[in-house]
Simulated assay, not measured.
Amino acid sequence: MISKIINSYTYKKYHRKIKYFLSSRYYNNSKYLPEGIDRVYHIHIRKSAGTSVNSAFWNLGDLTLKKIGREPLVLSKKFSFVCFNKELIEAGHYLYASAHFAQWELNLKPNTFTFTVLREPYSRLVSLYKYYTWVDQVDEKTGYYLDTSYYVLKAQKHLLGKTFKDFVDVLSDKYLTNQLYTFSQTLNVADALNNISKVNRVYFQEDFQYAISDLETCLKLPLHVKNERNFGNIDIHISEEEKQYALSKLKDEIEFYKLAVEKYKNVVCI
C-alpha cells in the first residue's frame, strides 16, 4: 500500500514540488564550488562516456544511476542534482545537472560551468547501434536493472531495422550526427565550432581519465567514477560497404570532431 502511494503520480508531483522549494531556498550549492562558479552543467553527448562522468558527480551525494532512476531532481546530503528536465536546468538550483539537450536549446544561468565530452563519430555511432541492439536482446528485468532508460529505449527499437545501414538511414540528424547537432541546429561546422567555443571545457572520450582529473582541478571537487553498467559482448555485423556508407553520412561531423580535437585536446585548466 505504501509503495503504491509513493509511486503514484499525485505523490510524485507534490514530492517534487517540495524538493524544488527546498533546493531553491535552502541548498547553497555554489559555496562548494570555486569563486565565480554557481553550478555545473554537463552537455551530455550520447555514447560518449557521459553516464560514467555523471557517476563521478552523483557519487558526491552517495547516489547511483539506479538510485536516481528517472527523477528530474534529487536531493542528497548537502547537494541537489538535476537530470533530464529543461525547466529545472534553466532554473539553476543544483550543484550538478546533465541532459541530452542541444546547447542551443538551453538558456543557462550566468556562472554556470559547462563541459562536454566528444567521441570519434563513427565509433560513437557503432556504440549507439550496439546499445539499441542490447535493448532489443536483453530481458526486461535485466534491462531495467542495468539502465533505467530501458523502457524509453525499448519503445524506439524500430530504429534498429534489419541491418546497420537500415539503422543509419532511419536515424534523425539529432541521433546520427548528435555531436554536430548539439552545437549547431543547422548542422554547420563553422557554427558548431563557434558555439562549442562558449563551453568552459571540451573533453574527449579517449582521454576519459584526463577529463575526470581536470574536472577535479577546475571545480575543486573529489570525483570518483563508479561504473555501474556492463552490457556484455553485443554481437553485431557491419560490412565494409556499410561502414563506408556511414562514414559518408558522418562527413561533416567528422570534420567538426577533428577541428575540435586540434583546438581542445588536453587543454590544461588554469
Rank of each mutant, 00 (worst) to 15 (best):
N59P: 00
D191V: 02
S24A: 09
G143R: 14
N107L: 09
T177L: 12
S23V: 05
L247D: 06
L247S: 06
R25E: 13
E255K: 14
Y131F: 15
F81R: 12
D252G: 00
K141T: 01
T148E: 10
L118W: 14
L146W: 04
K13P: 07
Q209R: 07
K265A: 07
Y203Q: 07
A97C: 02
P121L: 08
W104Y: 14
L75I: 12
K220N: 15
L159P: 03
N188D: 15
L259F: 04
L247R: 08
I89C: 01
Y26W: 13
L160R: 03
Y181Q: 08
D207P: 02
S197H: 13
D38F: 08
V74S: 15
L247Q: 08
R39S: 01
L88M: 14
T163R: 09
Y129W: 09
L219V: 08
G36C: 01
F113C: 05
H44W: 02
Y41Q: 10
P110M: 09
I68W: 10
L153M: 07
K77P: 08
L176Y: 05
E228T: 05
R70T: 14
E242F: 00
Y129P: 09
L159W: 05
S23C: 05
S3N: 15
H237T: 04
E241F: 03
L160M: 08
N200C: 11
N227P: 10
H158C: 07
Y132N: 08
L176I: 07
V261P: 11
I196S: 11
N107D: 13
S76K: 12
S3V: 13
D169Q: 04
L247N: 08
A91K: 14
N111H: 13
F81D: 03
I196V: 15
V267F: 07
Y27A: 05
T51M: 11
I5Q: 05
